[in-house]
């Protein structure tokens, strides 16, 4: 209650700006979670386009198939796959924290590394499965 009576504002500590911190893995992962979330957000346009084209008919669907088979299309799909797996593992990491676990110094680093290794591994695994579903080497 004494705070309200002081006339001069007390010098308060300022939060250091982002540029001051040494880049750390855990910090990069926090940023990556946000960027992948935003990527998936816009990726929903692609999902909508695909589903609507399927509902419209064979010609519209052929256009989507053509685009997704192109270099640009494949790049988008590959990026989407990684964004989804990374964001999902990162999300699970958040849920582990929400349950009160994983805050130790080694645990944090371990979880961050597991998210990267896991998401890259899952992306490669999914594309390998996809490659064979599509008929493998032809």
């Amino acid at each position: 209650m004494t705070e309200a009576k002081t006339s001069a504002p007390r010098a308060r500590p300022l939060s250091p700006h982002l540029q001051i911190y040494k880049p750390m893995l855990t910090m990069m992962m926090s940023i990556a979670h946000r960027i992948t979330g935003a990527t998936l957000y816009f990726g929903m346009i692609v999902l909508a386009w695909w589903l609507i084209s399927a509902a419209v008919g064979p010609n519209a669907y052929a256009n989507v198939e053509w685009f997704m088979g192109s270099i640009v299309g494949r790049f988008i799909l590959f990026g989407y796959t990684w964004a989804l797996t990374h964001h999902m593992l990162g999300g699970i990491r958040h849920l582990i924290w929400d349950l009160g676990h994983g805050f130790g110094a080694q645990e944090r680093e371990w979880l961050a590394a597991a998210t990267i290794v896991g998401s890259v591994g899952l992306t490669i695994a999914l594309w390998t499965v996809g490659y064979f579903v599509m008929g493998g080497p032809r």
């Binding site: 008919g57 052929a62 999902m88």
Partner: peptide, 30 residues
């Protein structure tokens, strides 16, 4: 949090569905 928990299994289902549909004709997909 609730949507995140739900999305873990729903995203897995979504990915499996996409893999099932890869390379199929329009008739097969719909």
């Amino acid at each position: 949090r609730v949507t995140s928990v739900a999305l873990i299994s729903l995203s897995i289902a979504f990915v499996i569905i996409v893999l099932l549909l890869l390379g199929r004709t329009h008739a097969g997909v719909i």
